[in-house]
C-alpha cells in the first residue's frame, strides 16, 4: 500500500478502509470502527469488490466509486462554469448601454 509509514501491512492492527463499505461493525465500534469494517487484501476488499490501488488517508475507493466521483466533479465544474456565464450575461444586461456612460 502507498502508506507504509502508517503501518498498513499484513501484520498491522489498523488497515485501510474501503469507502462505501457496510458499517455494521463500524457503527458498533464507534470511531475506532472506521478502520475495522472492511480491509483490502491484494487489491480486493473483503466484501469481494475490486478496489483501486490509490489510498487517501487509508480509505480506498472502488472503481465504480471513482467513476461516480469523477462524474460529480465534472458536473460541479459545468455548473460553476454555467454560473460564471450567467453572472457575466446578467451583468451586461443589467448595465446595458449605461456601461459606456460613466465618468472616467
Amino acid at each position: 500500500m502507498a502508506r507504509k509509514s502508517k503501518g498498513y501491512g499484513p501484520r498491522s492492527k489498523s488497515r485501510p478502509v474501503e469507502r462505501g463499505a457496510t458499517a455494521t461493525g463500524a457503527a458498533a465500534a464507534g470511531g475506532a470502527g472506521r478502520k475495522m469494517a472492511s480491509r483490502t487484501i491484494a487489491g480486493r476488499s473483503t466484501t469481494g469488490r475490486e478496489v483501486s490501488g490509490s489510498a487517501i488517508d487509508g480509505v480506498v475507493l472502488t472503481r465504480e466509486q471513482q467513476r461516480r466521483q469523477r462524474q460529480r466533479s465534472i458536473a460541479i465544474a459545468l455548473v460553476l462554469a454555467a454560473l460564471c456565464v450567467l453572472f457575466y450575461v446578467v451583468t451586461v444586461v443589467k448595465l446595458g448601454p449605461a456601461v459606456l456612460v460613466r465618468p472616467l
Binding site: R19, G20, A21, T24, Q65, R72
Partner: peptide, 14 residues
C-alpha cells in the same frame, strides 16, 4: 444498515 458507508458518504451518482 444495508447501505451506511464507513466514511459517512454514499458516493451517489449524478
Amino acid at each position: 444498515n444495508g447501505a451506511r458507508a464507513v466514511d459517512g458518504l454514499h458516493h451517489g451518482s449524478v
